[in-house]
Amino acid sequence: MRSVIFRAVAPFLTSLMVLFSIFVLLRGHNEPGGGFIGGLIAVSALAIYGIACGVETVRRAIYFHPMAIAGAGLFAATIAGLISIAARVPFMTGLWIYPSLLGVEVPLSTVTLFDCGVYLVVVGAISSIALSLEERGGE
């Protein structure tokens, strides 16, 4: 799109939205939010960036191919389920650890890993669709 204002604002808007999507992802465990909705917000950020600056720029910016991102997400989600082998509990059981980072207790869990996997699958799959649609619709 040839609007100067839009082009100038888009990078900031995009980074803000990606940041917000990660916030929504992490907030999702006990409150509204989570991997799916977070992923959608991240994809809309990428879509805005694509409309403003072109699809090639977005592809360069995310570095990995969108489908590879989705694959990584699926892999992470599967691993999150398999970790429970070690604890002798059934598949997909939520397991928690509470490491202390810089004096703050950080609860980490397989559930969070699974949710991150969902986030990546949504980001990868939907951005793959959105980018190829933009590519064909643009010129």
């Binding site: 590879a68 694959g71 699926l74 892999f75 599967t78 691993i79 002798r88 509990v89």
Partner: peptide
């Protein structure tokens, strides 16, 4: 606790999913 042999129930699915995801990457 779940016996290791019981994991065979879910393993075919998890195995295929993990390898499929790896190949997508």
């Amino acid at each position: 606790p779940v016996a290791a042999a019981d994991w065979l129930v879910i393993l075919p699915v998890a195995w295929c999913l993990a390898i499929g995801a790896l190949l997508v990457m």
